[in-house]
């Protein structure tokens, strides 16, 4: 479904990605784990076109989307939940969700998707007319995921959904991620620092170090891998 072919991404003169190649198949949950500054977020930014790669190719459904505008990429079915949630604090929950459906014109579809995300996260339905900034961290993360789902993506990019959240909330959010994947067949690309949890929900995983992919395997085998254990699981 999505493949990155040897992409190199720069921030000015600083090279963040040094030849990343990876493959995401339809219906999978893929996780990308790695330390701070390894280039995980940059990989997502390169896919969504916000920080386009300087060289290399990003292919989505067989089409090159390497230097396509971010809004076109969203309209092709790739939606991103940015790191640190980044909800709109002064817009209400409902308006935040409406912004997620910005490119859509099918009112009935939007309405049914709204009901769907409210069934996933009933707390959001309760707070629908409250400003986004007044939500708790966990609720904001739920809102960020819901907002991305409102675009009805085929591929959902999640950037550190566990960031700064209580373990109980993290668990709940990961349950929902699994549910979204199995119910709608939405492909999920999950970037995480919490390697243990991420590898438990994912089908396959990639390990990233200093802008390069160093390991790739089935998630359960990565969980058992001695190097991964030592470096990321703290065992």
């Amino acid at each position: 479904m999505l493949s990155l072919v040897d992409i190199h991404t720069f921030y000015g003169n600083i090279q963040a990605l040094k030849g990343v190649s990876l493959e995401v198949k339809e219906g999978e949950i893929i996780t990308l784990i790695g330390a701070n500054g390894a280039g995980k977020t940059t990989t997502l930014m390169s896919i969504s076109g916000i920080v386009p790669p300087r060289t290399g190719d990003v292919l989505f459904m067989g089409e090159a989307i390497t230097r396509v505008n971010p809004d076109k990429i969203v309209s092709m079915g790739i939606s991103q939940v940015p790191e640190g949630r980044r909800i709109f604090p002064y817009l209400t929950v409902l308006e935040n969700l409406d912004m997620g459906a910005f490119l859509r014109d099918d009112k009935d579809g939007v309405k049914s998707d709204l009901d769907y995300v409210f069934s996933l996260f009933p707390i959001l339905a309760e707070r629908r007319n409250q400003a986004g900034g007044t939500l708790s961290g966990g609720e904001q993360q739920m809102l960020a995921i819901s907002r991305a789902l409102m675009a009805r993506p085929r591929l959902l990019l999640l950037d550190e959904p566990s960031l700064g959240l209580a373990p109980l909330i993290v668990k709940q959010i990961f349950e929902i991620i699994k549910k979204i994947n199995s119910e709608n067949n939405t492909t999920i690309f999950l970037v995480e620092q919490n390697a243990n949890l991420a590898l438990k929900v994912a089908h396959r995983g990639y390990v990233m170090e200093n802008g390069r992919i160093t390991l790739s395997d089935a998630a359960d085998r990565l969980l058992a891998n001695e190097d991964v254990k030592k470096a990321y699981l703290g065992i």
């Binding site: 916000i50 971010p70 907002r147």
Partner: peptide, 24 residues
């Protein structure tokens, strides 16, 4: 209107806007 809300959203967070498919 929707463009009005897109302006407000753009004022609040550019990256989030782009990932929503708003053409900055």
């Amino acid at each position: 209107s929707r463009i009005g809300r897109a302006w407000i959203a753009l004022r609040e967070d550019e990256v989030a806007c782009q990932s929503m498919g708003i053409d900055k």
